[in-house]
C-alpha cells in the first residue's frame, strides 16, 4: 500500500491529475494531518439542448464527490479565491432544478446524515467557474482559523440542537393549520358554489356532498359492488346437479391429488439431493 502511494505521489508530481473528460480534478482533504486526498471533479454546469435547468448558465460550477464533512459554508470559503460565490447547494444526486422553496421545517424534516454529495456553486461572475477549473489544491476543509467539527464534538452539538423549543413548534403548527383551514374552507365554499350548477356544456357534477349522495369513486367501492354481484350469481347456481358436473368435481379432486403428488415428489427429489434422508 505504501509503495503504491509513493508511486502515485511521484506520478502526480510530474503530470496533471487524471480526470474524466470535461472535468478537472481538485484534491481535497480534511486537514493538514491527512496524507491521502479525495478528488473533487468540477466542470461548468451545462445542459443539453432543450433540457430546462434553473441554474444560471455560465456562472454555475458543478462539483462531484464532495466529502461528507464538507459543508456549504466550507465549500463557499474554499472556492471564494476564484471569485465571489453567490450560493452553494449540496445535493444527494445531480438535480437540474434549483431548490428555490424555503427550507423545510426543522421540526418535521430533521437534517439527514450526510454522505458523499454533489454541489452546485453559483459564482457572481462567470470568471469564477474558469478559475475554479484550474484550481490546484489540495483544498483543506478544516484549518486553524475555520475549524470544522467532526466526531464527538459534532455529535454533541447536534444533540444540543436536536433539543428544540416546544413554543416555536407550537407557533409553526398554528400558522400551518390556520393556512390549511383557510384553504379547506375555500375549497368547501367553491364546491358548494359549483354544486348543481351546470358547466358550459350543461353537465352537472354529482358529488357526495349533494342532496343525493352517490357512491364514492374509490377502487374499494367498485370492488365491493363486483363482489356482491358475484355472490348473487353463485347463490343461483346449482352444484353437482347434472351428471357432468358430478364427473367434473371428481376429476377435479383427482387433479388436485395429482398436483399434490407432483409437488411432494419434487420436494423429495430436493431433499434427496441434499442428502437429507440420512437420519444420523
Amino acid at each position: 500500500m505504501v509503495a503504491r502511494r509513493r508511486k502515485r505521489e511521484a506520478r502526480e508530481a510530474e503530470e496533471k491529475l487524471p480526470s474524466p473528460p470535461g472535468y478537472s480534478a481538485i484534491p481535497i482533504k480534511f486537514s493538514e494531518k491527512q496524507q491521502a486526498c479525495h478528488y473533487l471533479y468540477v466542470k461548468e454546469h451545462s445542459v443539453r439542448e432543450g433540457t430546462k435547468s434553473t441554474w444560471p448558465q455560465k456562472r454555475t460550477l458543478f462539483v462531484l464527490n464532495v466529502p461528507p464533512y464538507c459543508t456549504e459554508e466550507c465549500l463557499s470559503r474554499l472556492l471564494s479565491p476564484c471569485g465571489a460565490v453567490q450560493s452553494v447547494e449540496l445535493q444527494e444526486k445531480p438535480d437540474l432544478v434549483e431548490n428555490l422553496k424555503e427550507p423545510p421545517s426543522k421540526f418535521f424534516h430533521p437534517k439527514p446524515v450526510p454522505g458523499f454529495r454533489v454541489a452546485y456553486v453559483v459564482f457572481q461572475k462567470p470568471g469564477g467557474v474558469l478559475a475554479a477549473s484550474t484550481l490546484k489544491g489540495p483544498l483543506l476543509v478544516s484549518t486553524e482559523s475555520h475549524r470544522v467539527k467532526t466526531g464527538i464534538h459534532k455529535w454533541i452539538s447536534e444533540y444540543t440542537d436536536s433539543v428544540l423549543d416546544p413554543e416555536a413548534l407550537r407557533a409553526e403548527v398554528d400558522t400551518f393549520m390556520e393556512a390549511y383551514d383557510k384553504k379547506i374552507a375555500e375549497e368547501v365554499a367553491k364546491a358548494e358554489e359549483e354544486e348543481g350548477v351546470p358547466d358550459e356544456e350543461g353537465w352537472v357534477k354529482v358529488t357526495r356532498r349533494g342532496r343525493r349522495p352517490v357512491l364514492p369513486r374509490t377502487e374499494a367501492a367498485s370492488l365491493r359492488v363486483l363482489e356482491k354481484e358475484k355472490r348473487k350469481r353463485a347463490r343461483k347456481e346449482l352444484l353437482n346437479f347434472y351428471a357432468w358436473q358430478h364427473r367434473e368435481t371428481k376429476m377435479e379432486h383427482l387433479a388436485q391429488l395429482r398436483k399434490k403428488f407432483e409437488e411432494d415428489k419434487q420436494r423429495i427429489e430436493l431433499l434427496r439431493a441434499q442428502r437429507k434422508f440420512r437420519p444420523y
Binding site: 491527512q34 486526498c37 479525495h38 467532526t150 464527538i152 464534538h153
Partner: peptide, 15 residues
C-alpha cells in the same frame, strides 16, 4: 479511493 477512505474513518469518528 481506499487510502483517503481509511483516513475518513478516523476523521468522521474523531475522538
Amino acid at each position: 479511493n481506499v487510502e483517503a477512505i481509511l483516513e475518513d474513518f478516523a476523521v468522521l469518528g474523531e475522538g
